[in-house]
């Protein structure tokens, strides 16, 4: 078995046995992002073979602070599946995660394909059907979140689940860079931020994703849900309870975590 397959197997086993694993950088190094994306493809392909359906993408590492922390100059991305999607206030069983954290984002939903390797902001604006407030639940299969860039990319960009608000807005009705974000848990503010923190604008992040995806031959498709990147710092989920994110101009969305295992 190649190192790539061994790395993928380690991550898949961690997911299926719900037991965190060692980083995979011992197998694929800690700098080669192409190798890491090849492992990610093995991991996501296994999910598809098990019946999961691709519903979109997530963009990670969109803030300069997080990029600096991981020593990379650009974002990364992962694949979203149908079994990760939750509706506003729908209970989410904590048992499906290993070490969940939440971050508030703008979800961009496309109504046409974006298959140009040179897609820019104008292409994204034209292809956007509507935007929704969202909470992304990130999770790492790697013990203690001991990740470097290749570990998180291989691990499907540390994706876990996502919660979408239900009130869509058109891009023409919102000012995404000027969107304020406040996330609260138990009445206390746990994260604050702004749309501009996401590569200047969530739309710019989606343009980046469109270009990279087109080059990799996995272009964004009409109907895709794109989680465009965190607007503020991530907050840990340590017990059952709820997180409510307010995005000015977009509305609010609540993630409710419950004890127990997924059905």
């Amino acid at each position: 078995m190649s190192d790539l397959h061994t790395a993928a197997k380690r991550l898949i086993e961690a997911e299926t046995t719900r037991t965190s694993c060692a980083p995979v950088r011992d197998l694929i190094g800690d700098t080669d992002q192409d190798l890491a994306y090849q492992v990610q493809t093995l991991v996501t392909s296994a999910r598809v073979e098990n019946g999961a359906r691709v519903v979109g993408r997530k963009i990670g590492l969109t803030s300069r602070a997080v990029q600096t922390q991981l020593g990379v100059p650009s974002p990364d991305f992962g694949t979203l599946f149908d079994d990760m999607a939750y509706t506003d206030r729908e209970p989410i069983p904590l048992g499906r995660f290993l070490q969940p954290r939440v971050e508030a984002e703008v979800a961009v939903v496309l109504d046409r394909d974006l298959d140009s390797e040179t897609a820019n902001v104008a292409d994204v604006v034209r292809a956007t059907d509507f935007v929704l407030p969202a909470i992304e639940v990130v999770d790492s299969r790697i013990a203690g979140w001991d990740i470097r860039i290749t570990d998180t990319i291989a691990d499907n960009a540390s994706s876990g689940a996502f919660v979408l608000g239900t009130n869509p807005k058109r891009l023409t009705d919102v000012d995404l860079p000027a969107t304020g974000m406040a996330m609260e848990a138990r009445g206390a503010v746990v994260s604050t931020g702004a749309g501009v923190a996401c590569l200047g604008s969530p739309v710019a992040a989606v343009a980046w994703l469109a270009r990279v995806s087109a080059r990799q031959g996995t272009s964004l498709r009409a109907g895709d849900v794109i989680l465009s990147g965190a607007l503020g710092p991530v907050a840990p989920v340590t017990s059952a309870g709820s997180f409510r994110a307010r995005l000015s101009g977009l509305g609010e969305v609540t993630a409710i975590f419950t004890e127990g295992e997924p059905a």
Binding site: P177, T179, G180, A182, V189, T192, G193, A194, V196, R246
Partner: peptide, 26 residues
Amino acid sequence: DLANAAVVLEVDGEVAGTGSTAAILG
């Protein structure tokens, strides 16, 4: 919504900090 307005701090035209007025006592 004064309780959740985006805030940007720029130094010499570069973004040096982003946040929300919610950071001030909620």
